[in-house]
Design a binder for these strands. Structure first.
Lengths: 197, 197
DNA sequence: TCGTTTCTCCTAACACAATTAGGAGTCTCG
DNA sequence: CGAGACTCCTAATTGTGTTAGGAGAAACGA
């Protein structure tokens, strides 16, 4: 027998979360207020507390949802087996994922919301996503902590510049292929040097 | 004849600004409250409005000061004339400047304070700093918009990862030389290719 | 020297946001 | 039907930015 009560509760919770995303995307993460959320959902602010323990709990749910989306997104990447091609593919997917929803990017990767720290639970989802990414990269031959750190710096740097300084454009997006070629040449040389010292 | 009134006013303003920096560094940019500032300065919060028109005006003054520090910092870099060496030097200076005071970095380059937008005046100082940097890079042979954009992405990426994921450490700082070698090799090749098409 | 102006700082009060307390209506299930 | 849980409300508290308006001191001109 279905638990109608729990179902409705969940569905209201989801609705609130959806509205929260809408407002956050329109007003910025910091511009999200429970007052606005409540109003758009047809409630008074205190009523939201039946669904979320605090505003931070809302952020946390958004964080968890974003992390889950990140995992799903990754599953869509179809690798070819050629390292350079795959690097370009992965980088482009990552930047696309971030620029498609800058608010989500800010929440997941910049962590710049006033006092917010994700709960252990939500954080675990996020870590899982990054771990999955690490495995994928290891699978195409990018291994070793330094090579990975350099790659993350490069890709997040492109993403960040794109979002901060040319939102909606492609000024840094169009450098992705070039950047991956540069990175690939560098890593190849390093590995060769490592092989025959 | 000295304008003692104006002098005292300026000095109080500077004191308030100093306290604001202290609190911001300790509590985070978003954790800055006028209440705390006033208390540490020995005033009531409304009294601060004799010196700054609003909280944003305080942020703006901090922004302008940070931008000025960025300009001074740059003046200290002594170039050698060798492109790769100078690239490493500049990158290291930049990352040092940012990691030395992450709060300032957040204010100047991340622009993540709730509703804050720098005034045209303060912004001009900031633009001047970046323009100066561009000139310096052009001087050592890094020219062309794409080469510059790629470099800024790389350097800010390193900075960002360092501050976000290993504050106080050197996990990304120690990749700077390697990153600049990678970048230099790439740009050299591009230029050669451009020379003989 | 004495008003006048200006500056500095204060108290009182408002607006807005998150949050808590407590209660009335409503749904679900035994 | 009645008990219990659930949903939503109003009222009130706290913290923060900000405005209004005034008292006292400092500087300045006649």
């Amino acid at each position: 027998m279905r638990d109608r009560k729990a179902e409705r509760h969940q569905s209201t919770k989801a609705e609130i979360l959806g509205v929260a995303w809408e407002i956050a995307r329109a007003e910025g993460l910091a511009g999200l207020t429970l007052r606005d959320v409540a109003h758009r959902v047809g409630m008074r602010p205190p009523s939201l507390y039946s669904y979320f323990a605090s505003k931070d709990a809302v952020y946390d749910a958004m964080f968890a949802q974003g992390s889950r989306e990140f995992l799903e997104w990754q599953a869509k990447v179809e690798l070819t087996g050629d390292t350079l091609t795959d690097l370009k593919l992965i980088a482009r997917y990552f930047v696309d994922f971030c620029t498609e929803n800058p608010t989500r990017y800010q929440l997941l990767f910049q962590r710049t919301v006033p006092g917010f720290e994700p709960s252990a639970e939500s954080f675990a989802v996020s870590v899982e996503g990054l771990e999955e990414l690490r495995r994928t990269l290891a699978g195409i031959g990018i291994t070793g902590p330094e090579a990975l750190d350099l790659l993350t710096a490069l890709v997040t740097g492109l993403t960040d510049q794109q979002i901060s300084n040319d939102p909606g454009g492609d000024r840094w997006i169009r450098l992705i292929d070039q950047a991956m070629e540069m990175y690939f040449a560098h890593v190849s040389k390093r590995m060769k040097a490592g092989d025959e010292p």
